[in-house]
Amino acid sequence: MKEIVVISGKGGTGKTSIVASFATLAGKAILADCDVDAADLHLVLNPVIERREDFSGGKKASIIEENCIGCDRCIEECRFDAISYPDSGKADTPRVNHIFCEGCGVCFRVCPADAISFKQAVNGEWFVSSTKYGPMVHARLGMAEGNSGKLVSQIRQEARSIAEKENLDYIIVDGSPGVGCPVISSITGADLVLVITEPTLSGRHDLLRVAELTSFFRIPTIVCVNKWDLNADITGQIEQEAREHNVRPAGRVRYDTSVTSAQIAGTSIIAFADGDVSRDIRDLWNSVVTTLDGGAA
């Protein structure tokens, strides 16, 4: 069983459309949508939810108003400015702003009056679903909630255990943009990272930062320039620079408006139309498989 993580650095380069296509091509595979901030894979794979679990990113504090003596020790020690008196002035006890609360528990521990409760908060849900192309693990993070890195780890762990149980060949992970916490959670320990970028200076800049990140964690990495024909010169430059950073160009996918049409139709481009762009993605998947099975990027 091999795990491939598709990320991009820069957002909006076509990760999810390509992952959905891989799903239709992969055979015995499980999908994991780890872009928990803006999960979109379900819109094209139409999963049927079979199991749902609450996600807790950690604890949150709340003031127990009847116990509060108004000493303000919690306000003094909170480093996240999460505790204050409401503007209205109606309440005579402070309130915890749950959006800013980091869940460190300092307030709970300094309170001399037992006036703070500190409990596991539910801030999202994750699902095990079935799709036409195999099982899928995905999630929904609550509005304005944090700790997406922990949710990403849980999704990957679940995907791995299902893949082991059902003896699947591939775990295909849709990652998130950037190089921070959720991205690091989605790539550590993976067999291969595929970076989807675009032929723009921003795409090039962001690819180099991602390449630095995967090299930092020593994960073999390949790259694909999506919509490459929008700027063939920059595509060439990106592939050249990628090689210099030990990132092998593994394919190119051309620009085609039918990719958007497929998304509107709620399906992957492979299932939608068998044109040139679908062939590009097939070639890319074959290249991914060869890399994974050959054991080297």
């Binding site: 957002g11 928990v36 901030d37 803006a38 304005a144 909630e145 944090g146 997406s148 943009p177 959720p182």
Partner: peptide, 14 residues
């Protein structure tokens, strides 16, 4: 702002 809806975005827009 960065993309998404979680901690970094909230820090940027709050």
């Amino acid at each position: 702002s960065p993309p998404g809806t979680s901690c970094p975005v909230i820090e940027a827009v709050k």
